[in-house]
């Protein structure tokens, strides 16, 4: 019996979301009185033994040409074999782009009940009950997993990374690796920028910005805060900004530490995707804007005047003015 954590990586680097999943899995293993082990498929530049600092005792590192690209079907078959060979009782994924494809498939393959979008450690005092977000963050549900084995997909930014001093043993396993049926033909990464779903700080703007030509002041604040950019749905629909930046009930759901919303009214569908942010700052010229009700800090004023001042003040605090 053990807790097995899927460790995801991109461009040779382990994703922050996976460090959250490892920290979560390690604490869950401690709670269940068992060991925490990780599994990583493909090639990475990092030293995997260092992942012991987040609490895993062992990391299985499997390399094969068929694992060089992410293919949900191949990864599922390989992970199921790893779970069987290591006797894993609980599988932990980050609920990120890979976890969203893998966790449901593993749930079926292992006949293990799935909780996706988990936000805290299970309550194991009476069964196995995991809290997850529902209604786009407007409510939560406690979901009881009734099977022997379990699969959890942990929401991004829902769990704090713990860092200690351990070292993990790095091992390999013998598994069958089938050939993928998908073939990657191109990749388009906006490299160097902060990824929206993983970002700790997000700067977002809405129709109040009047047009795409005005996004310079939004980008400058984002740069000063080392933040990812986001926008409201009409802004993406009008092609002022790419679809990938649209947050809300029908866009990306995010939970950063700080969400700055400039010139966004705060419609219920927008709030649904951002209400899990720890601190919300709203800048809007209309004191009646509904967003103020969901905010922690607010300024009633003109974005064109406030945003540049905001950027300057941030630079001062960060000592880069």
């Amino acid at each position: 019996m053990s807790v097995l954590i899927f460790i995801d990586h991109t461009s040779g680097m382990i994703k922050k979301a996976s460090r959250e999943a490892i920290s979560y899995g390690a604490q869950l293993a401690a709670q269940l009185g068992t060991t925490a082990e990780g599994v990583l498929l493909g090639n990475v530049a990092e030293d995997l033994s260092a992942l012991g600092q987040h609490g895993v005792q062992k990391v299985y590192h499997l390399q094969h040409t068929n694992l060089d690209h992410f293919d949900a079907q191949v990864y599922t078959k390989v992970l199921a074999q790893v779970a069987d060979q290591t006797g894993a009782q609980v599988l932990v994924f980050s609920n990120n782009t890979s976890g969203k494809a893998l966790a449901p498939a593993l749930s079926v393959r292992l006949k293990a009940g799935l909780v996706s979008g988990a936000v805290s450690l299970p309550d194991t005092s009476n069964g196995f009950v995991v809290k997850k977000n529902v209604f786009s963050g407007k409510a939560f549900a406690n979901v009881a997993v009734t099977t022997e084995r379990k699969v959890i997909a942990l929401n991004v930014n829902a769990f704090t990374i713990t860092t200690g001093t351990g070292t993990a043993e790095v091992a390999s396993l013998n598994v069958d690796v089938p050939a993928p049926k998908t073939r990657v033909i191109s990749k388009d990464k906006s490299s160097g920028k902060v990824t929206l779903s993983e970002a700790e700080v997000v700067v977002s703007a809405g129709r109040g910005l009047k047009g795409p030509e005005n996004w310079g002041i939004v980008e400058e604040l984002a740069t000063a805060l080392d933040a990812a950019l986001a926008c409201s749905r009409p802004v993406a629909d009008a092609h002022w900004r790419p679809h990938s930046e649209h947050v809300g009930q029908t866009g990306v759901a995010i939970a950063p530490n700080l969400y700055v919303a400039a010139g966004i009214s705060g419609a219920i569908q927008h709030l649904a995707g951002v209400n899990r942010s720890k601190v919300i700052v709203v800048i809007n010229k209309d004191p009646e804007a509904p967003f103020f009700k969901a905010a922690d800090y607010g300024i009633v004023g003109d974005v064109f005047e406030i945003l540049p001042k905001f950027t300057e003040a941030v630079k001062k605090v960060k000592g880069v003015a």
Binding site: T10, K15, F70, N96, T97, T182, R183, V184, I185, S186, K187, D188, K189, S190, S191, K193, T195, L196, S197, E198, S244
Partner: peptide
């Protein structure tokens, strides 16, 4: 994909 798109 995180931070971009991929065509398969």
């Amino acid at each position: 994909i995180e931070g971009g798109e991929e065509t398969v």
